Amino acid sequence: MRISSRAAGLLVGVALDAAFGDPRRGHPVAAFGRAAKALEDRLYADRKLNGVIYTATLVGGAAAAGYAVERRAHGGTAEAAVTALATWAVLGGTSLAREGRVMAGYLERDDIEAARNRLGHLCARDPSHLDEGGLARATVESIAENTSDAAIAPLVWGAVAGVPGLLAYRAANTLDAMVGYRNERYEQFGWASARLDDVLNWVPARVTAAITVACAPRAWRVLRRDGGKHPSPNAGRCEAAFAGALGVRLGGANVYHGRKEQRPELGDGRPPETSDIRRATRLSAIVTAVAALAAALAANGSGR
C-alpha cells in the first residue's frame, strides 16, 4: 500500500517526538508565545473585539504560514519532511509523559514541596495546600486532559488539514494557555481564544475518550454517565474516560488564582494515589500511539 506524504510525515513526527521530546533550543512554540505577548501588549483592551482581532491575527497567521510552507513543498519527500517537522514541533506527548514521571518520582520519595513546585508544568491549579493525594489527583487529571490537548488534537488536525492544521491548532491552544482565563484581565480579551480552543478540541476530546474506551472497555460506563458533568465541554470526556479506565474517582475542589471551584466527581473508584500517575502516563502513551496510527490512516485515505 502506498503511503501518502501527509501520513508519512505524521508518523515520522510522532517518532521524533517519542525519541527526542520537544526541541531543546529554538522551540517554535516558544517563539510564537513571545510574538503573541508582544502583540498583546499592543492590542490589549478589556473588550472582546480586541481579543477577536488578536486571536484571528495570530491563529490566521500560523495557518497561512503553514499553508505557504506546505504548498512550496508540494508533495513527495519534501511535504513529508515539513509535515514531520511541524508534527514534532507541536506534539507534546513525550513532554507530558516526562512531567508525569517527574511528579511520580517526587511523590514516591515523599518530596511534597518539590511536587508542589513542579505542578505548574502541568496545570494552573494552586498547589500550595495540596497533600500527596491532592497532587496525585491533579496530575492524573492533567495527564487525561492534556492527552487530548497535547497529542490527540494535533494529530486530528494534522490528518485533516496538514501543516496549516498543525500550526493553527497549536497557535490556538497556546493562546488559550496564555489569555484564556476567567479573571479580571482576560475575561473579555481572552474570550475568543478560549472559545476557539473549545471548538478545535471538541472532536479530539471525544476521539481521546473513544480510544481510551477501546483500550479499556470498562471506561465506557463512566464516560457515558459522567462525561458531560464537567464545566469544560471537552476536559470532562477525557477525565471521565481515564477515571473509568484506571478505576479511580476524579474531581473535587480546586483552587485557581485564588478562586475555589468545585468540580463534579467523575468515576466511582477510590481517590487517585501516587502509583496511578504512572498508570495514567502509560495509558496516555497507548492512546497516543493508537491515535497516531488512526491519523495516518485517515490522512492516507484522503490521498494527501
Rank of each mutant, 00 (worst) to 15 (best):
I3Y: 02
S5H: 14
R6V: 03
G9M: 05
L10V: 04
L11N: 01
V14R: 00
L16Q: 02
A19L: 15
G21T: 12
D22S: 15
R25N: 10
P28A: 15
P28M: 11
A30Y: 00
K37I: 05
E40M: 11
A45D: 13
T55Y: 05
A56N: 07
V59Y: 12
A64V: 03
A64K: 04
G66Y: 04
V69C: 06
V69D: 04
E70L: 09
R71V: 13
A84E: 04
L85W: 08
A86N: 06
A86W: 08
S95R: 15
G105R: 08
G105E: 05
E108H: 11
D111C: 05
R116P: 08
R116I: 11
L119G: 09
R125S: 04
S128K: 00
L130S: 00
L135Y: 03
L135M: 04
A136L: 13
A144W: 05
A144R: 10
I152P: 01
A153S: 13
A153C: 05
L155V: 10
W157L: 06
A161C: 15
P164I: 05
G165P: 12
Y169M: 01
A177D: 07
M178S: 13
G190K: 11
D197H: 11
D197E: 06
L200V: 15
A205K: 03
A210Q: 11
I211N: 02
A216T: 13
A219R: 01
D226N: 07
G227N: 07
G227M: 08
G227D: 00
K229G: 12
H230W: 05
P231V: 07
G236S: 02
A243Q: 03
A243S: 13
A245Q: 02
G251K: 14
G251E: 06
H257I: 00
G258W: 01
G258P: 03
K260H: 02
R263F: 10
G267H: 06
R278Q: 10
R278S: 14
R282N: 05
A292I: 09
A296M: 03
